[in-house]
């Protein structure tokens, strides 16, 4: 069956690579947008406790909604294609990034922060040199959770015409063509494992100081 899937890929090389490309692009965009929104938001939540409950609550309740449902809800607003799929995946990626950024910043010892400002560090330097590096291991771990979820869920984009590897899975299911299903499923699994490995390596690097 795997051999048949391989033959399918070699015969439809262009279609396959286009799907991989779409899949990777949509996943990375979703992650980048989520990080760009949620890292600053997580930092603000850690600094201003008044923000914590409402912001965390909002994103946690959004997480309860299944991704497919989000797609359907967004359909009348954003239509079909790449954009609504990206929006749904971004929402999916937000909670782990937000929560881990918040936790990472909260974990910085008050005495460390006090010492840093008593040495004459300004807020910017404190953030770059002390808080970010100390929060980094947890933040990267959140990013890793989000990345694996997003790569796996990006298959759903195909349901609303967003393209990607999900297209093969849907077609395979529809046509009872298991080799075609594998053409979608195996690369998705491989991509998820790759994300996990890369980010785990990064996490290990960032947490070197905790393990020595």
């Amino acid at each position: 069956m795997v051999a048949e899937a391989y033959r399918y890929i070699t015969e439809n090389r262009e279609r396959f690579w286009e799907a991989v490309q779409t899949h990777v692009t949509i996943s990375l965009y979703a992650l980048l947008i989520a990080a760009a929104i949620c890292i600053p938001l997580g930092v603000l939540c850690a600094k201003y406790s008044r923000l914590t409950a409402p912001v965390m609550g909002l994103f946690n309740s959004l997480r309860v909604i299944p991704s497919l449902a989000v797609l359907v809800i967004l359909l009348p607003i954003l239509g079909t294609g790449f954009t609504p799929a990206l929006a749904a995946l971004t929402l999916l990626a937000c909670p782990p990034i937000l929560i881990n950024t918040y936790l990472g910043f909260r974990k910085v010892e008050p005495s460390v922060r006090e010492a840093a400002s008593a040495m004459g560090m300004g807020a910017g330097r404190l953030l770059r040199r002390v808080e970010l590096p100390l929060a980094a291991p947890l933040m990267i771990s959140g990013l890793k959770t989000a990345a694996v979820e997003v790569v796996a869920s990006a298959t759903l984009a195909a349901f609303i015409g967003g393209g990607g590897l999900g297209t093969f899975i849907i077609n395979g299911l529809g046509l009872y063509n298991f080799p075609m299903l594998l053409v979608g499923a195996l690369p998705v699994a491989a991509l998820a494992v790759l994300m996990e490995l890369v980010l785990s390596g990064l996490e290990r690097y960032a947490s070197k100081f905790q393990r020595i």
């Binding site: 005495s111 460390v112 006090e114 010492a115 840093a116 008593a118 040495m119 004459g120 100390l134 100081f209």
Partner: peptide, 15 residues
């Protein structure tokens, strides 16, 4: 603060 040294019990060293 850059002109005043500061030492605290919990050391506040950057881990």
């Amino acid at each position: 603060r850059r002109g005043i040294g500061y030492v605290i019990q919990q050391t506040g060293l950057f881990p």
